[in-house]
Amino acid sequence: MFEEIRWHGRGGQGAVTSAKILADAAHREGKFVQAFAFYGAERRGAPVETYTRISDCHVKRHSQIYNPTVVAVLDPALPKILYLKGLSKNSTLIVNSNKQMEFSSEIDCTKFWVDATQIAIDLKLRVSESYITNTTMTGAVAKATGLVKLESVIEALKNQLNERIWEKNIEAVKRGYNETHPYNNGGK
């Protein structure tokens, strides 16, 4: 098993934390992991990429992820060109969207959608201008890919986040997990 997950969000939405929680969860299930990001001048609202690698054995690679097996999109308004790069038909794409967002027919990977922004609004997961969709999307990735169990994500979340915000975020993970839908045509 060698999975490369690329997260796309905006500065302030918590994509770094998503990458860490998923890595922590996979590590709890005995995997070797890496969680990192491309760091530049971090600015709220600017598109950001973060990465998680999950493997059965020690990972020697340190470069960014160019051909992801999984792409998770935290913000529906991100330009598609940013997150569709490097996807193959074996990849899985999980988009935060309130419906089946349309893609051109060349994007023939397995697709899922989850209305993470609505979940964030419901749970009041908001920091200034940004709705925080990171924990919801981590739950969604767990469901869509089966890479980690829901319980592992919750345990990892408790390890990574301050106790003060556990409750809301655990609810977000659960809703993300339960409200992730495959695209109608069998996910294609």
Binding site: R43, P47, S130, Y131
Partner: peptide, 8 residues
């Protein structure tokens, strides 16, 4: 194009 950063 920093317009890409917009949520609202």
């Amino acid at each position: 194009k920093t317009g890409l950063w917009r949520t609202f």
